[in-house]
């Protein structure tokens, strides 16, 4: 227990942890603030103005249309060829209709909490996952690299317990940060919804779904933190985790994408990691194979491949477990110098 508290304190004392926390806060606050300016509440005035504008637009285009028809008929009377300039029958069949001027299109953007907040949960999860990665990797990486780990082992020789406690301290901290910031994030968007958007139809069911999305976000953040920790511990250097992340990103997002493109593997994106991140949040990711379509024969349903969130859980879970097992195994075996 004393070791756990010590490690929490060590993590909190680190400058990088504090710096990253500040950056995370500033980043999230900036996104929320900037977004709040882009949303406008649809008050009756605004709606009425939009209605008036579309009425006016309708009137104007009917007048334009009438003038064109008159011009065309005059030209016909002069015996000119009009098909090309005015279309068949002087465009008389194309009278503007009122439903073509929906006042909706003249409305400013309004944030809809119920429909759009889930996307912002994913944005939040991405930002906090980055935080978890950097803090997790450097927490153990710097310890290895500066000899702090060796010093600690002179006091606490049970290596697995030491590494496990450090991991627990990291995950506790990351969890705390995620929960607190997640609550603030939700509150901020609820506030944007009530003051500058709409929070209509936010039923208990909607909240439950938002809660589940939140849990997904927390799980992703913890997995990312644990993987970063494991990689940095395996390589005994912070840079190892960052390097591995860059390598995986390059191989998965660029290398595999190009390879499956060249080889025209059907549903090649199912080998790309970001597909799984996407399906983790959206409950599933749908991949289409347009090569099965012959558009010349008309509309076509392309072949579909669905990546479910369960598959994502499996992929990320297996990856995280492999990295952690590797880290703990080498911790047990390797000489420390």
């Amino acid at each position: 227990m004393s070791l756990f508290v010590t490690e929490l304190r060590r993590l909190g004392k680190r400058r990088l942890t504090r710096l990253m926390l500040v950056l995370l806060l500033v980043g999230l606050a900036t996104v929320a603030t900037a977004f709040s300016f882009s949303s406008h509440k649809l008050s009756p005035d605004v709606v009425a103005a939009a209605q008036a504008e579309s009425d006016a637009q309708y009137k104007r285009s009917v007048e334009d249309w009438k003038r064109t028809v008159t011009d065309c008929e005059a030209a016909q009377a002069r015996g000119e060829q009009t098909e090309e300039r005015f279309g068949p029958n002087c465009g008389k069949d194309y009278q503007p209709q009122p439903e073509m001027f929906d006042p909706k299109w003249n409305l400013p953007y309004q944030f809809d909490f119920r429909a759009e907040f889930p996307t912002f949960i994913a944005v939040f999860a991405g930002a906090v996952a980055l935080f978890a990665f950097i803090v997790g990797a450097s927490f153990v990486g710097a310890e290895w690299n500066t000899g702090g780990m060796m010093n600690l082992l002179l006091w606490r020789p049970r290596r697995l317990a030491v590494l496990g406690t450090k991991l627990a301290a990291l995950l506790t901290t990351v969890l705390g940060v995620t929960v607190v910031l997640g609550a603030l994030w939700t509150a901020a968007f609820w506030l944007i919804g009530t003051s500058r958007g709409t929070t209509a139809k936010t039923t208990a069911g909607v909240w439950r779904s938002i809660g589940l999305d939140g849990l997904r976000a927390v799980a992703l953040v913890l997995v990312v933190g644990a993987v970063a920790f494991a990689l940095a511990s395996l390589g005994r250097h912070t840079a190892m985790a960052l390097g591995a992340a860059v390598a995986v990103f390059a191989i998965s997002e660029i290398g595999i994408r190009i390879a499956v493109g060249v080889l025209s593997v059907p549903f090649g994106e199912r080998y790309v990691l970001s597909t799984y991140a996407q399906s983790w949040f959206m409950k599933q990711a749908e991949l289409f194979d347009y090569d099965t379509c012959q558009f010349a024969k008309g509309a076509c349903e392309p072949a579909k491949y669905v990546v479910t969130w369960e598959q994502s859980a499996l992929v990320f879970g297996v990856g995280a477990v492999a990295a952690l097992v590797g880290a703990f195994w080498t911790m047990r075996r390797r000489d420390i110098s």
Binding site: R14, G147, G148, M150, N151
Partner: peptide, 11 residues
């Protein structure tokens, strides 16, 4: 114990 020019977390 100290083992050969021990290192500490510099910050």
């Amino acid at each position: 114990a100290i083992v050969e020019s021990p290192q500490f977390f510099p910050h």
